[in-house]
């Protein structure tokens, strides 16, 4: 099967420093967690896939089509959604306006479920209660739901999620994990950037570790969670914190 996303040899420089040094990564459906410590280039990679940053070298293919050099809005229209780090909800727009803004009824969709505004409210009933609230008046968890809903109504076949668990309460984290399960069940592929091993391993079966600008390790989560040595080497996590 053709991979949904195929990244090969991607190099990115930012303000003179070499952030990504030849990233190779492939995702063929389901969910893949991109993990690693802070400052390793995870968000840079996400921004490069979306076309917000330019890569000097390499190739990023989505369903076989080259993305490098394309404008962000064209990349999004091919079927890639972004749930960005820090949620980035619009402060001038209400919850309902966020979803109306992003919803494009004419866009063709590859996933099994067609996402419209009503579907998002079914997925996150909390949002429906806040329908007229401005984006920044919401709690952190509600903002995360809104950021996910906003990406869903563009009907993506691949969803990039950058630190979705950041700042969430444990209960809210479970809600978002549950939502992610429903998305993968509905045929949407996920690339999840995460600091929280608990979140990452709950949402994805597979992981890739990004360290100083390159993928250093890939595999299945159960194997990683058993391998204390690997965890402490790449994630800086001591044995006690791995407990799930």
């Amino acid at each position: 099967m053709e991979p949904v996303l195929e990244i090969s040899g991607v190099h990115v420089y930012r303000q003179g420093s070499h952030i990504l040094k030849g990233v190779d990564l492939s995702l063929s459906g389901g969910s893949l967690a991109l993990i690693g410590r802070n400052g390793m280039g995870k968000t840079t990679l996400i921004s490069t896939i979306m076309g917000l940053l330019r890569s000097s070298e390499g190739s990023i293919r989505f369903m076989g089509q080259e993305l490098i050099g394309k404008k962000p809005c064209l990349i999004a229209r091919k079927g890639i959604g972004l749930v960005p780090q820090g949620k980035r909800v619009f402060r001038s727009l209400t919850v309902d306006e966020h979803l109306k803004l992003a919803f494009e009824p004419k866009r063709k969709h590859q996933a099994d479920i067609y996402w419209n505004v009503e579907r998002v409210y079914e997925l996150f009933p909390r949002l429906k209660e806040r329908i007229r609230q401005e984006g920044t008046r919401l709690s952190g968890g509600e903002q995360q739901m809104l950021a996910i809903g906003r990406a869903l109504v563009t009907n993506p076949s691949l969803l990039l999620m950058d630190e979705p668990s950041e700042g969430l309460s444990p209960i809210m984290m479970e809600t978002v994990i549950e939502a992610c399960h429903r998305l993968t069940a509905a045929g949407i592929s996920l690339l999840v950037v995460e600091q929280s091993l608990h979140f990452a391993s709950s949402v994805s079966d597979r992981y890739a570790i990004l360290m100083t600008g390159a993928i250093v390790q890939q595999g299945e989560f159960p194997d990683l969670l058993r391998d204390r040595q690997l965890l402490s080497a790449y994630m800086g996590i001591s044995n006690t914190r791995v407990a799930r």
Partner: peptide, 24 residues
């Protein structure tokens, strides 16, 4: 209007509007 929503959102966060597939 949709143009109005694009303008208001674009003032807040231009890149975020673009990654929704909107030609800002």
């Amino acid at each position: 209007t949709q143009l109005g929503r694009i303008i208001r959102a674009g003032v807040d966060d231009r890149d975020m509007v673009a990654v929704l597939g909107i030609d800002i």
